[in-house]
Design a protein around this nucleic acid. Sequence first.
DNA 1: CTGAGTTAGTTGATGTTTCAAGTCAGACCG
DNA 2: CGGTCTGACTTGAAACATCAACTAACTCAG
Lengths: 167, 167
Amino acid sequence: MSGQSREPAEEAAAEVRWLDPDELAAWMTFSALMFKLPAALDFQLQRDSGLSHFEYLVLAGLSEAPGGMRRMSDLAGFANGSLSRLSHVVKRLEERGWVQRRPSEEDGRITVAAITEAGFEQVVAAAPNHVTTVREYVIDTLTTAQLRQLHEIGEQILDRLDPGRSC
Amino acid sequence: MSGQSREPAEEAAAEVRWLDPDELAAWMTFSALMFKLPAALDFQLQRDSGLSHFEYLVLAGLSEAPGGMRRMSDLAGFANGSLSRLSHVVKRLEERGWVQRRPSEEDGRITVAAITEAGFEQVVAAAPNHVTTVREYVIDTLTTAQLRQLHEIGEQILDRLDPGRSC
DNA sequence: CTGAGTTAGTTGATGTTTCAAGTCAGACCG
DNA sequence: CGGTCTGACTTGAAACATCAACTAACTCAG
């Protein structure tokens, strides 16, 4: 708070449009969902495959890329994480023998991560259970219409969060 | 994710219903949303008020409780976190002078956390910006119908995640 | 009233994420 | 060419979360 000049509470409150009961209820639900669903997915992956969701995304991102390889910043974007976080995680995955890194030949600044045979087996083993869980928790709870709605709602919010992601 | 059939660990793989393109697209969008929206909210709170989202929820949960106090496990549920996590966080909030803890008089096992005057000012200062951000990113991007849809979708998924939460 | 069992919360070790700083390669400008 | 600038990472320290072990308070059966 310290950076800003704040008016006393009442004055600030006067300008704020608080959430009405419907809005609040919807937000509380959605907000709880945003905390619990990732936790549930993480739990399932950890239990069944010994992977965090982030690690799974990294391996999945590599396994579906051409040649099983991808540059770090690309992967970081795919897995929705910072480059620094990815770097640490890939180091651990490398220690477990599932990924290898080497500098790109075209541009020495770029690091290319490549999935190994063992890493590929790991994703192939993890994917069925994971997809089944995603179906169970999300996809199959919704009607086709709801899925379309969710897709659209998601796009709208993402556009607002990060304007200029589709230009 | 290519579903090649393999020998040992995958009697499951043959039976898995992979996501069709529409399902996959919807899931990817929703999934990105679940990672980016919390991060965006965290960022806004951190920048404007020096609080993590979890800390904000703790203070907000106290400030709206009768007497500004609430027992730990109750608060933990409200903020969607483990008791252990809450305990560490409340310790830090206590060091910052925003919360106080004391054992309950009725039952000595119970710890009651109470918000201080300074803590209350902190939430009051943080809330307007936070609500405005929630509006900007979520509520005001959606039509009334979409908000209702999102509410319903959220409820359905939460029910599946944690059956028996409304019994 | 005593001791096994349960509940509520805390703590310290461990692991993960973030943040700020650092390295190294290529691009650009004169 | 040489120097500065930017881009793509990596690293180590600090902040934070999670996990397992622990303590203290209550409950209740005998």
